[in-house]
C-alpha cells in the first residue's frame, strides 16, 4: 500500500474539521478492518492522503442504558457487543449478530460504527486495482449482471448496481429501531444507508457517527446468519426480528439488497398472531414475494430467495 498520514484528533469537531478541509482524499478510520483492506487492494476511488482516526476521541465507546434508550458508542468494539450480558439478556439479536460477525480477532478491532458503514463486498467492486470500472466507481456497467451473481441482490438494482450491504449488525439495529447519532443530526437507522452510487451511507463526508440510540426493549429478538462458513464470513443472507412486549414486530433482512431490507410484509403476516412454524414460514414467503433472482452467467442467486425465506422463518421462531 502507499504511504499515508494518519491524524488522531481528540475531539469530534477536530476530526470533522480535517474531513471538511480535505473532502476527497481523507477517510475516517475506526478499527480499520474495512478501509485498510480497501487501501491495500487499491480499490478506493481516490487513494487517501490521510486517515482520520477516531481512536483518541473520548466518549465514543461503551454500552449502557440511559433514560429510555440503550446507548452504544460508535467506536465500541464489535466483540464488546458479542460479550455484553446486557445485550445478551435484553437485546439478544444484537449480541447474536455481533457474535457472528467476522472472527474474534476482527471483532476486537472492528467497531460498531465501522461495521454499519462498511463498503459492499461485491467482488467486481472489490477487484484489485479497480479493474472493473463499475457503476459504484463512476462507470456505466454493473458487471455482476453479466457475470457471477451468487451473492448479489435479490431485491432489484440500485441505480443499476446489484451489490448488497454485508453488515451483520445492520438488520439487528433495524429490528431494534435504532437511531444513529452524528455530529450533525440524528438519523433513523433505516435512513443511514444510501441508494446513491458510489456511497454506502447518507452521511456527509465530514459527518461522524458518535453513538447509536436504541429504544429500551423488553420483548424478544433473534438474529440468524446463513453463510458458507461458520466464521470469518459475510452473510449469504442474514436477518433479525424483534417483537416488543405489545406484540409489534420489526423484521429486517440484509445481504439481499444495497441497503438492509425491512420486511413489512412479514411483520404484517404475524401481527397479532401466535407464532407457529407455519405462520413463520408464511411470513418468510411473504417477505420474498417481490424478490427476483439475477441469473447472470455463473451461479444464479435464485437460491438466496429460498434462504431469505428460511432466515425469516428462523428469526420469527426465535422470538417465540
Amino acid at each position: 500500500m502507499k504511504n499515508f498520514k494518519q491524524y488522531y484528533p481528540t475531539t469530534v469537531d477536530e476530526a470533522a474539521k480535517y474531513l471538511k478541509e480535505n473532502p476527497k482524499d481523507t477517510y475516517i478510520v475506526g478499527g480499520g478492518t474495512d478501509v485498510i483492506g480497501a487501501m491495500k487492494d487499491f480499490i478506493l476511488p481516490t487513494y487517501p492522503v490521510a486517515l482520520v482516526s477516531l481512536d483518541k476521541i473520548p466518549g465514543l465507546t461503551g454500552i449502557k442504558e440511559e433514560g429510555d434508550y440503550l446507548i452504544i458508542g460508535a467506536m465500541t468494539k464489535v466483540e464488546d457487543l458479542a460479550m455484553s450480558d446486557l445485550l445478551k439478556s435484553k437485546y439478544t439479536c444484537l449480541a447474536e449478530a455481533a457474535s457472528r460477525t467476522a472472527s474474534p480477532h476482527l471483532r476486537e478491532s472492528g467497531t460498531v460504527g465501522g461495521n454499519l458503514c462498511q463498503m459492499t463486498r461485491c467482488w467486481y467492486f472489490r477487484h484489485n486495482n479497480n479493474q472493473f470500472d463499475c457503476v459504484r466507481k463512476g462507470g456505466s456497467t454493473c458487471y455482476a449482471l453479466t457475470g457471477e451473481t451468487r451473492f448479489h441482490s435479490i431485491f432489484g438494482l440500485t441505480k443499476m448496481c446489484a451489490a448488497v450491504n454485508p453488515s451483520d449488525l445492520a438488520p439487528a439495529m433495524v429490528a431494534l429501531n435504532a437511531v444513529a447519532v452524528t455530529n450533525k443530526k440524528e438519523i433513523p437507522i433505516e435512513k443511514l444507508w444510501s441508494f446513491a452510487v458510489p456511497g454506502s451511507t447518507t452521511l456527509d463526508h465530514d459527518e461522524i457517527i458518535t453513538s447509536f440510540k436504541i429504544p429500551k426493549f423488553t420483548g424478544k429478538s433473534c438474529f440468524y446468519k446463513a453463510s458458507v462458513r461458520r466464521t470469518i464470513d459475510f452473510p449469504i443472507v442474514n436477518g433479525a426480528c424483534a417483537i416488543d412486549a405489545s406484540g409489534n414486530a420489526r423484521i429486517c433482512l440484509n445481504a439481499v439488497a444495497m441497503t438492509p431490507h425491512r420486511c413489512t410484509e412479514a411483520e404484517e403476516t404475524i401481527k397479532g398472531k401466535s407464532i407457529t412454524e407455519s405462520l413463520a414460514a408464511e411470513a418468510g414467503a411473504a417477505a420474498v414475494q417481490k424478490a427476483k433472482a439475477i441469473p447472470g452467467t455463473g451461479t444464479s442467486n435464485e437460491y438466496k430467495i429460498e434462504i431469505a425465506k428460511g432466515v425469516i422463518k428462523k428469526v420469527i421462531l426465535g422470538c417465540k
Binding site: S103, Y124, N128
Partner: peptide, 25 residues
C-alpha cells in the same frame, strides 16, 4: 475458484472469498 465467465477473471483471489474451512466449521 470462482470465475467471471464473461471476462475469464478470477473473482475470489483472497482468503475472504476463497473459503478454506476453519476450526469452527
Amino acid at each position: 475458484y470462482i470465475y467471471d465467465k464473461t471476462y475469464g477473471v478470477i473473482l475470489n483471489p483472497d482468503l475472504q472469498e476463497y473459503k478454506i474451512v476453519t476450526m469452527l466449521d
